[in-house]
Amino acid sequence: MRVDEKPIYEGTFTVTGGNFDNAGEVSSNIKSVLKRMGLSRDVVRKASLVAYESEINIVSYARKGMIRLRVVPESILIEAIDEGQGIADIELAMQPGYSTATDKIREMGFGAGMGLCNIKSFSDTFLISSEVGKGTYLKMIIKTNNRSLNS
């Protein structure tokens, strides 16, 4: 993604840590935004899935955070930025099945240790950085394979 490229859509969505009742609301909004642009179903699905797992992570492990969405004709950029406990060992956290989830998270049907793996496998580019006690930053790019988007 070129930095100077004018986006078709740019938006920031706030996510509150610990608010399990509304977890997924931001991702539903992101999905509606992307659907309206006329992106293919497959691309919308991948982007919503990536946003949803990121949102669940913020709700589960952070005090607060946000999801930034930036769409240019060739790709969708999703960034999930939070202030929270951070991840001590990223390599371990990326392993399928590894989880530090609480009972509350498991009650929702999450915490199976698949979140970050899912995010990575549905993104075309995936970057993660984290600092213990500060927070976590995720950057995901999904290619649109589509040049005729509605703005």
Binding site: E25, R41, E53, I56, G109, F110, A112, M114, G115, N118
Partner: peptide
């Protein structure tokens, strides 16, 4: 497990589950 659903379920399929919270619908 919703994370498994996200990993493997395909669009247009049925989701058969015993979970009843809003995350199932999300």
């Amino acid at each position: 497990l919703m994370s498994d659903v996200l990993a493997f379920a395909t669009s247009g399929s049925l989701l058969i589950t015993g979970l009843t919270n809003p995350q199932v619908v999300r």
